[in-house]
Design a protein around this nucleic acid. Sequence first.
DNA 1: GCCGTTTTCGGCCCGACTGTTTTCAGTCG
Length: 612
Amino acid sequence: MKVDISMLLTLVFQASGVSSMGGTEMSEQNRELATIFEVMANVLDIQGENYHRVLAYRRAADSVRALGEPIDKIQSEGRITQIPGIGDILAAKIDEYLRTGQIAAYQKLVNQVPLGLLQILEIPGMGPRRTKLLWETLGISSVDEMEAAALAGQLRQIKGIGARTELKLLDGLRAWRRQRTGRIPLGVAWPLIQEIKRALRDMSGVLQAEPAGSLRRMRETVGDLDLLVAAVDSEQVMVRFRTLPMVDEVLLSGPTKTSIRTMDGIQVDLRVLPPERWGSGLQYFTGSQAHNIRVRALAQEQGLSLSEYGFRRENGAEIVCAGEEAVYMTLGLPWIPPELREDHGEIEAALEGRLPELVKRSDLLGDFQCHTIRSNGDHSLPEMVQAARKAGLHYVVVADHTDGTLCGDGMSMADLDAFLGEVAHLNAQLAGEFRVIAGAEVNIQPDGSLGWPDEVLARLDFVVASVHTDFGLPREQMTQRVLKALRNPYIDMIGHPLGRLLSRREGIDLDMEAVFQEAALRGVAMEINAWPQRLDLNDVYVRRAIQLGVMLGISSDAHDVDGFAVLDFGIAIARRGWSESHHILNTLTVNDVLLWRQRRLTNSRASQRAFE
DNA sequence: GCCGTTTTCGGCCCGACTGTTTTCAGTCG
């Protein structure tokens, strides 16, 4: 039987929430290939294959998923084996995939086990051993069959599973069904962990409390929440944690670790560390797993073993790390920012002393997109300006939707005089302290033309162009649409270029490589929209944009006075994409931003004249 | 299956928690 890859992708995405995890991928081929390797890893795991071989496939999947450029482009340039974790054998499989659209070894593997086992493997409490046992001894090959067997008390026939485990697996199965819709967006996870952190931090004897795991690395979505606490009396902290008001169920609880599930079905893991070992614990639990494996290998090269409790020499002597810096310093490395810890080149960069100086929130002087009651915002222009000042900004682009964008009523061209007058009036009042930039967010029509004519756009000081309709255009047409908008000299930035809404809407189908090249050529910025449901561009594209010399701008897309707080998430995505301050347009002063724009306008007029 | 300035073979991170165990396997992160 030939397994239809798209069907399998659907199955696996549903099972793992992968589609909302990585967001829009660099290309359909990258995504499909990553999933193929992931599936191969899981099948091999179930079959009891050598674990390191399994890991090799997982690592390859992760590498391909994180690529900043289309895999066929890398292939055509002969750089496949330069991808971390891709050796000769996997390179041949990639080649086979790109030539024929399939991989024989993959077909063979998926024919060896029922695909339902891949879903069973996703259930909390089920690993490869048990999945295999269920299949071999009870013939269970789907989640539904497993549930029926558990309800009938048949799972306990299996060696190593008793009545308690059977109940736990049933719980896990139900949690899996609830959660299969996807992972938790950063915008949900972050406030929740802060709330829990505050509740524990207040306790006497608690010295530190910080998020760890993918949350500290600021991934756009997280599977569960990790919180780390340094305290002398761990039991006291565990008791408080288990009895927090949002706790629905305690999953497990020991002296160093407790896991709970909240009323919303979110799992939160708390670990308590002795204060003197805070650094090694924080480093360890921040991950990622791939990063830690590399760090541990470095330790081993130096005759050290590293765990969450610190280093141990071969003679048993300990090196205890109270701070995270000490962990990296022991290995001869500078401290690596959590956002980079994905084993996507940060270890090599650290070894060679070329870690990026990542952009910080305090570097941001302005914001390129906020909305007022002129379109679909909740507050007036003066109120939004006041809020932007309170957020520590020095300038803000007020970029209401233009009419006809389906986002509220929109600002009409007839409103423009009144808008420009209000901006001028505010700027006169604020002279020297703050600058309001008169802008607009104009729609990119399906044919690539813009919602307003050029002579109207020319009256504005900053124009964001975004796709708000006709999200389903085919790739070629969608790409031409955005490219045409990019060639309009009055466009300063493409807003939320992927057009996705996390776990609600897939991104538009766009040849981002072509778009970036055009943006770099024209000197148009690409937006990092910080709104938590967007985070658009995402980290992978940010890194690629930087490689191609594209200027980036971070926007809050604030629709109310509280909306500027999300700039933190925009900064997080920029940092995950290895952005330094000079890659980010709004680290410039307002005058330099206007100069940047003026230069592009002058250049485009000059080239226009040359063309004529 | 990957990888290499101790290398082309033999390593590949490591500990907590649980449940079912009479000493440990499986899962998890």
